[in-house]
Design a protein around this nucleic acid. Structure first.
Length: 338
DNA sequence: AAAGTCTTCAACCGCCGGCGA
DNA sequence: CTCGCCGGCGGTTGAAGACTT
């Protein structure tokens, strides 16, 4: 593994993988003198390396307190949770995981966790459902490059998403997409003075979908739509426009086929978490889903992908839902309109 | 069995902020 | 204030190994 030297020597300094002899020289020197001045260290230790290379080798590999081996479930949970809070602040995350280096965590994130989240339909950057599941980003991008919003152009793409392209199934539930589309096709949602019955019917259909909870899983996605209000101007954000979380939502959990179903199974506990309390960094206030029945790594990998929504994601989503809940007035508005 | 493709991760690079001169 | 040095950080690379065709 590792990178080979791009040039054997540059200013007389070696690059590339470290040999056991070099490692021993570095260890011996630091054990004897400690590490302080990385610039002068290699010369004093008899190494043909730059100080940066020595520091990297020591902090990422030779340090005696480095923990080796596979990340535990708890470590992984912590990484995901911290990442949802801090983003790619690998050194800050590493500071909370004794024995793990920022480089190791970064690698683990990129090769394991990130992929797993993507597989689950979660955007690993925002920790919300992926916008690109809808392939909407490309639509929005093309709108950007066209500089003006073309109503018909968008509908062409939307129809592809809704109908499939002859080779693939539609990407999303067409009713939901119709509703989403209708939201973005208008300056505002219909009100009591709106006389276009067709549009009102569209909203009616979309609103009915909300009743079975499925739309809830798309709220974060739709809110990302809202960031493009300048392109597709609306008076309010999508979040503002949508009805609130229905009060009888619990009845619908079992009906949902959403990828976010695990969220729903934990909503009860999430919603009782005081919104003012800080997100627990060690997840102690939220019970871990037990995967101990999975014996092999592969089984666990599969288990995580299929069943486990991380506590951080639940926490994130609970925040969103709590935010959405305050739009009860909007729901009342819809009730009046429809 | 061989060739092609994918995955992993150690190590590099460039950039940035802190600090002293 | 500016400059240079240094440590530290996050993104990226690419060889080696694993896996697939």
């Amino acid at each position: 593994m590792g990178r080979s030297p791009c040039c054997e020597k540059k200013n007389g300094l070696k690059k590339g993988p470290w040999t056991p002899e070099e490692d021993q020289k570095l260890i011996d020197y630091i054990n004897k003198h400690g590490y302080g001045n990385w610039r002068t260290l290699p010369k004093n230790a008899g190494l043909q390396r730059c100080g940066k290379s020595c520091r990297l080798r020591w902090t990422n590999y030779l340090r005696p307190d480095i923990k080796r081996g596979r990340f535990s479930f708890e470590e992984e949970e912590t990484i995901i949770q911290l990442h949802s809070i801090m983003g790619n602040k690998w050194s800050a995350i590493a500071a909370r995981l004794p024995g793990r280096t920022d480089n190791e965590i970064k690698n683990y994130w990129n090769t394991h966790i990130r992929k797993r989240l993507l597989k689950m339909g979660i955007d690993p950057v925002t920790h919300t459902p992926r916008l690109d599941l809808l392939d909407i980003s490309s639509i929005l991008s093309s709108s950007i490059y066209n500089s003006t919003y073309h109503h018909h152009h968008q509908h062409m793409n939307m129809s592809r998403l809704m109908m499939g392209d002859g080779h693939h199934q539609p990407l999303v539930n067409p009713e939901i997409l119709k509703f989403a589309t209708s939201l973005f096709s208008n300056q505002n949602y219909p009100n009591n003075t709106h006389d276009n019955q067709t549009e009102v019917n569209q909203y009616q259909t979309g609103y009915n979908m909300i009743g079975n909870q499925e739309l809830l899983s798309w709220l974060p996605i739709m809110d990302q739509f809202a960031e493009f209000q300048d392109l597709m101007p609306m008076k309010t954000t999508v979040q503002d426009s949508l009805p609130s979380f229905p009060s009888n939502h619990e009845d619908d959990y079992s009906k949902s086929n959403s990828v976010l179903e695990p969220y729903y199974s934990d909503f009860a506990s999430v919603l009782t978490t005081p919104s003012s309390s800080p997100t627990p960094l060690n997840s102690s206030s939220i019970t871990y889903i037990n995967s101990s029945t999975c014996s092999t790594d592969d089984e666990k990998e599969s288990y995580y992908s299929n069943n486990v929504m991380s506590t951080s994601e639940i926490a994130d989503y609970s925040f969103d839902v709590n935010g959405f809940l305050q739009f009860q007035e909007t729901k009342n508005h819809w009730d009046r309109v429809l």
